[in-house]
């Protein structure tokens, strides 16, 4: 297995997913000569300056034009180049949704679209900059794989996995400064294969993105009350790891899906759609941003408002047991 930069984890945790992205793209540039980075005027924001300086001939800024960014990316991919297109999660899957459908999805191209600052990470910038529906938009497009990594090292490993993956990927990045380290050592990461992070028999928390830390903390709160909680890191929303879900359906009594996204069309929706095919499965409740636009506030405020904290998740589970 390729050696991962464990020595960077503390810094990556401190600085958040953008730094992991920027540094990992530079590493990918060294390891994959056919790999390029495309953006739409987001170079400093997405921490792409390092890549731009290291590989000026493999870095393309198409200007503030996200639709063209996706089609340009598709044109590169058609010809065998490996593009990583980087944009804001609030803008990129939604505005060029049609380009993602007809160019990347329909032609099933090997390209990765990275959405940074997903969910309500942009807090004070307001609702125009919140990505609460990005997974829903992409999930409806055939051929797309959707990955929402849960910690700094997983972001790094997911980007590496994307560089060798067949078909288009939407990589949804959450986890700002203070991004919890959930994997302090190297671990087995495969797109489409969920990780049983914690064993437990009653409640099953199925989470993705940076909320894994809150999910584990909530499980510990419940443990003190004698409630056994399994925690599943469902980093890949599409395709779902149905083998893992089948285990949960047969072994747990309550499912709580946990995501920084709308309850419609995201991880919770995907689990519910799969679950609908079976009788006698556990009840599912949704911890999410709700089907609503948000109040203005910083990220911590919005997480608390929506119950996406350890205590909020624990309370939700307890109420529904």
């Amino acid at each position: 297995m390729r050696k991962v930069p464990i020595e960077r984890l503390q810094e990556w945790s401190k600085l958040g997913h953008r730094t992991v992205l920027g540094e990992t793209l530079v590493m990918l540039g060294a390891d994959y000569p056919e790999m390029v980075t495309v953006t739409a005027d987001l170079t400093p924001t997405a921490r792409l300056t390092g890549f731009k300086e290291a590989y000026p001939d493999r870095f393309y800024d198409v200007g503030i034009a996200e639709q063209n960014m996706i089609d340009f990316t598709a044109g590169l991919a058609v010809e065998g180049i490996r593009p990583f297109a980087v944009g804001l999660a609030a803008i990129v899957p939604m505005r060029p949704a049609e380009q993602m459908r007809v160019a990347l999805g329909y032609m099933n191209l090997n390209a990765t679209v990275v959405g940074i600052e997903a969910g309500v990470r942009f807090g004070p910038l307001g609702n125009t900059h919140y990505a609460m529906d990005d997974i829903a938009v992409v999930r409806a497009i055939p051929n797309f794989t959707i990955v929402s990594p849960s910690d700094p090292l997983q972001v790094h490993k997911a980007l590496y996995a994307a560089a060798e993956y067949d078909g288009p990927i939407y990589m949804r990045l959450t986890g700002g400064p203070g991004f919890p380290i959930m994997y302090p050592e190297d671990f087995d990461f495969q797109i489409g294969k969920a990780i049983e992070y914690r064993k437990g028999s009653e409640v099953a928390f199925i989470s993705n993105g940076a909320l894994l830390g809150e999910a584990v903390a909530a499980a510990e709160i419940l443990q003190t009350k004698g409630i056994s909680v399994r925690v599943i890191d469902m980093h890949t929303v599409k395709p779902l790891d149905t083998v893992m879900l089948d285990k949960v359906f047969s072994e747990n009594k309550l499912i709580v899906t946990i995501e920084e996204h709308s309850p419609i069309g995201g991880l919770g929706g995907a689990v519910a759609e799969y679950k609908a095919g079976f009788s006698g499965t556990p009840k599912q409740v949704f911890a999410s941003l709700g089907d609503k636009f948000q109040k203005l506030g910083d990220h911590a405020f919005l997480m608390k408002e929506n119950g996406l904290t350890a205590s909020g998740l624990a309370a939700l589970a307890e109420e529904n047991l």
Binding site: D57, R58, N68, T73, A74, G75, I81
Partner: peptide, 17 residues
Amino acid sequence: GNGFAIAGGMAKAAKIK
């Protein structure tokens, strides 16, 4: 519009290669 925009990416790919 999309075919033209994809053609731009294909032309760039030819330059890269």
